[in-house]
Write a protein that binds this DNA or RNA. Structure first.
Lengths: 331, 331
DNA sequence: CTGAAAGCGCTAACAT
DNA sequence: ATGTTAGCGCTTTCAG
């Protein structure tokens, strides 16, 4: 492997000149420049970026902390982040935490140890047990929840949930079940808050038996639908699901039990996965601008990294409420 | 930011000892060790990994080249890779190529410039226009196609496709449409080969009008279904779709046109996304062991990186053919 | 415009 | 067991 010194020797110039030729070509005479070119091609020289980054004290890398990369919503956010940081010459290190606190630690350590300059966190902030914010690590939260104690970009989960339930109520539903995410997950908390706001406004009593504790994964939608189906005459006429995965599988569960959607039960989701408009019936849901959330959070992080003080540190992006075929007025 | 030298000074030891204490604690006396500990905590010392990697000439990082991270299949493969390399102390750099050759180049350059030690490529190998294999960059292909000219792990796309179409034929179908991926995509080519093998065996004539050129995305399933629907009495009785996304949206398209699945038309997919068992009707499809493909390819790469010669360089993993509700015998 | 030389933070001989 | 020192490949003053 040839180094800059080899190129210097080969071209009869000094390492300093080679370095300049590479970083600022017009500060070097054309004649030297072509010599450098020739030497580089001859030796097939590739700069050692590890050395460069070390020397420059900048890794030009960020890490993305993500609970589970094989979740479409997160994957879309990541895609958004990747695209903007890449334009700025940054790379992204993937930090799949698998929900484990320890792995989260390890990835955060990457920025403490200079392997990355900053971090965007897709895991929603937990009140207790959250490590961030941390001195010396610049971080932003993407797609998180209310009251995240460091810069964040997200949608208004409470408001969105409220809107969905309002709509269900406007359709005449009074008995509205919920398929929740994990109980202590901030998204679950925010979205449940929206649900409660809405039914309260309508004078509907909150009934714990209408809340099924899921975990945001497909299978829990299925078991939730079993649970609700067994409620028989006390079965809700509508189901507010805290994400599309659970909504889609809940539909399947109800269908398997011979119910019709939306005739027998209305179902709503949250996220608007690409697939949600193609399922049958197409899902009524909240569309989170996942890609946009990623892009905005990346821009924010980049600003922070440049030492600029962004005028805002909490971006609440607009969402869409998309009414499709899985909801209808009560019979 | 404190350096190893500060720790040395603070503890009254030398940098060499600190270094050893960190990398091989038992080669240092307990007394010194505790001094080192004390100094580290006092100064809140964090080693500069950039320096370490530079010095050690190893980045302990791999890059994953992926056409589109917001595609569930790829996301699952990535998840598999991440988990195994992480266990070995490696990090992963995400290389979302967005299908652009130039970006692919840039990411490959990362290993040439020492930013990464190796690479796993999720973009299937193209005969022409493929840059890999490259001298000096150790790479493995994951989830690719036949005849990839460097180590690879994948399933037998041709055989799997053949199996699906065989099944359709066994159900009495003779007019079997195809929703293909991009024409020059290796997966399209392999899977079409399987289709042709199968119908040929059955003595069915190949009819170009039964092949619709999609692009692996949802919307093309929809437009494909329009195309086939307009064939009227020449409409196929079954549709072999080259991935689940297109199959799911093709189902939606047919449903929208008032057809029943599988009664009026059978539909099959490829990939077995998590969602595919929850759509209605549940999709008959090929299950690629995405996570496993990721894991195996990571292990392979790690071996290569250690200079070991793996006894195999082409792993063809088993797939499952999963018969669900979207297919039935012809009326 | 170009060259010489110092030094980034760490590790690995080598010496003690 | 510990200290000393050279040097990884690059950039950046500072002189010329």
């Amino acid at each position: 492997m040839s180094t800059i010194r080899d190129v210097a020797k080969e071209s009869g110039l000094s390492t300093g000149t080679i370095s300049k030729a590479l970083s600022d070509p017009k500060s070097v005479s054309p004649k030297s420049l072509s010599k450098v070119q020739a030497a580089i091609t001859k030796l097939n020289y590739k700069p050692n970026m590890l050395s460069q980054k070390f020397r420059n004290k900048q890794s030009k890398t960020i890490v993305i902390l993500v609970p589970d990369i094989a979740n479409l919503f997160f994957a879309q956010v990541i895609s958004g982040i990747e695209h903007v940081v890449h334009k700025h010459g940054f790379s992204v290190l993937l930090g799949d935490t698998n929900g484990e606190k320890q792995r989260e630690q390890e990835y955060i350590k990457m920025v403490e140890t200079r392997l990355a300059d900053g971090l965007v966190n897709l895991c929603p902030h937990m009140d207790q047990g959250s490590i961030l914010p941390l001195e010396n690590v610049v971080a932003v939260s993407a797609g998180g929840c209310e009251n995240t104690p460091y810069p964040s970009v997200r949608i208004d989960n409470v408001g969105a949930s409220e809107k969905v339930v309002d709509y269900l109520i406007s359709l005449g539903h009074r008995r509205i079940g919920v398929i929740s995410g994990l109980e202590d997950n901030p998204h679950s908390i925010d979205r449940l808050k929206g649900y409660r706001n809405s039914i309260e406004k309508a004078g509907i009593k909150f009934e714990p038996e209408l809340i099924y504790g899921g975990d945001f994964n497909f299978w829990s939608g299925l078991s939730a639908s079993e649970y609700f189906y067994r409620l028989k005459d006390k079965m809700p006429t509508a189901l507010f699901c805290m994400n599309d995965d659970m909504a889609i599988s809940a539909m399947k569960g109800m269908l398997n039990n011979g119910l019709k959607i939306p005739e027998d039960i209305s179902i709503t989701g949250f996220d608007d996965l690409q697939v949600s408009r193609y399922v049958n019936p197409a899902l009524t849901t909240i569309s989170q601008p996942a890609q946009k959330i990623g892009e905005k959070s990346a821009e924010l992080l980049l600003q922070l990294l440049e030492g600029k003080n962004p005028n805002q540190t909490e971006y609440v992006l607009p969402y869409d409420f998309i009414i499709r075929e899985s909801t209808s007025a009560i019979k």
